[in-house]
């Protein structure tokens, strides 16, 4: 919590730390894929829905144990890229992809990798809270039950552990059997985060997780995200550039489906290599 309490310093520190491991993206991409520093990587990924090409030739390594922000104007393909990492796009009509996405060096489309186990390893939090129509307790352990990760007697303690982790335990401990829909929006989103964490993912994908929340709830989610690393690799899509600066170690800037720039957050915002990036983070378009 101490790093999160002072959000300005943490990305900087982490950026320096990660920069010392692999100074540039290109260097990281040249390393073999079993490199433990890379959790996820897109390799020349091109993705289209019908006639519309959403992503073109994206190559990016997502650093393990870091927070990576995906930024870019509306329609740049950042949410599509995020949803590709846990294969949520596969059933969209007209979906087609070239290239590959590797998790720990293995294709996410590998026939030997079951979709449900990929999604157990790659969790997701959505734009708006989406609790299930069951009690608060059942919500937290829904994934644990689905993957048969623990027996019945352990459920309550698992729920307590993860509700405590997201700071919701005190508020809900007397109403675990209640409907989650009576909670506030921020509490619901924390509940969804607890639910995602309960299945112990390696990677957590956040799709504008605070866009529907008030500033206080946003702050608590951001603080939490900082506590997840380095145990969990976090990829966050955000429209809010200030949020990217506050919580991301590394940032990927996408525009019109292309990856324009990928680097440590501080460098990308303060000293971007591309003019396009400079224009976007300087507020001149987007």
């Amino acid at each position: 919590m101490s790093t999160a309490a002072d959000p300005a310093s943490s990305p900087e520190a982490s950026a320096e730390r990660t920069a010392s491991i692999a100074p540039t993206v290109t260097a990281a991409a040249q390393q073999p894929y079993d490199d433990s520093a890379v959790a996820l990587s897109a390799v020349d990924l091109t993705l289209s829905f019908g006639q519309h090409t959403i992503l073109s030739n994206i190559t990016a390594d997502i650093r393990r144990g870091a927070v990576t922000a995906l930024i870019g104007p509306t329609g740049s393909g950042k949410t599509t890229l995020l949803r590709t990492f846990n294969r949520m796009n596969d059933k969209v009509s007209g979906y087609r992809h070239d290239g590959d996405v590797l998790i720990d060096g293995r294709s996410i489309w590998h026939p030997g990798l079951e979709l449900t186990s990929l999604r157990r390893r790659v969790g997701m939090l959505f734009q708006r809270p989406n609790p299930f129509p069951m009690s608060i307790l059942d919500n937290v352990v829904a994934g644990v039950r689905a993957h048969k990760m623990a027996g019945k007697p352990a459920m309550k303690s698992i729920a307590e552990q993860h509700l405590t982790e997201v700071g919701l335990w005190a508020a809900v401990k007397d109403r675990l059997k209640d409907s989650p829909f009576r909670l506030s929006g921020g509490q619901q989103q924390l509940l969804c985060l607890a639910r995602a964490l309960a299945i112990q993912p390696d990677v957590l994908l956040l799709d504008e997780p605070t866009s529907s929340l008030d500033p206080n709830a946003t702050e608590s989610i951001e603080a939490l995200v900082r506590t997840l690393v380095p145990d969990i690799t976090v990829v966050i899509v955000t429209h809010n550039l200030a949020q990217a600066v506050r919580i991301a170690d590394r940032t990927i800037f996408l525009n019109k489906g292309r990856l324009v720039e990928h680097g440590p957050t501080k460098q990308l915002f303060e000293n971007p290599a591309e003019e396009e990036t400079a224009n976007y983070v300087g507020g001149r378009f987007g």
């Binding site: 846990n86 186990s117 999604r119 157990r120 989406n130 829904a142 689905a146 299945i199």
Partner: peptide, 21 residues
């Protein structure tokens, strides 16, 4: 769609999504 996607993203099978959500 959102709660259904939430279940799918949690790694629930189609049958589990239907039954639970």
């Amino acid at each position: 769609i959102l709660p259904r996607e939430g279940a799918v993203a949690l790694g629930m099978s189609d049958a589990q999504t239907a039954r639970k959500v």
